[in-house]
């Protein structure tokens, strides 16, 4: 499953980022394998997505989000 498919509000864990440029950039924000993220909301047109991790919010396009593989976490 990838980040673009994750429903809004649900926590997930990063498994792999398949695109090198994106992976490097996300790493600098502390987003890499094993880190928890969630999609807070989407922009009105459905894209970009607003990604939350470690108290920080990032705008990320869906076309980039598909490169981010994730595993959903159990809902608490």
């Amino acid at each position: 499953m990838n980040l673009a498919e994750l429903e809004i509000g649900r926590m997930a864990k990063i498994l792999e980022v398949k695109q090198a440029d994106l992976a490097n950039k996300l790493k600098e924000f502390g987003i890499f394998k094993g880190v928890q993220v969630r999609i807070l909301r989407a922009a009105p047109s459905g894209c970009p997505l607003v990604l939350e991790s470690g108290g920080m919010q990032l705008g990320l396009r869906k076309e980039d989000a598909v490169f981010v593989n994730i595993a959903k976490l159990e809902q608490v």
Partner: peptide, 9 residues
């Protein structure tokens, strides 16, 4: 284009 769009909010 090389850089993906990532924008801190």
């Amino acid at each position: 284009n090389v850089n993906p769009f990532l924008m801190e909010i």
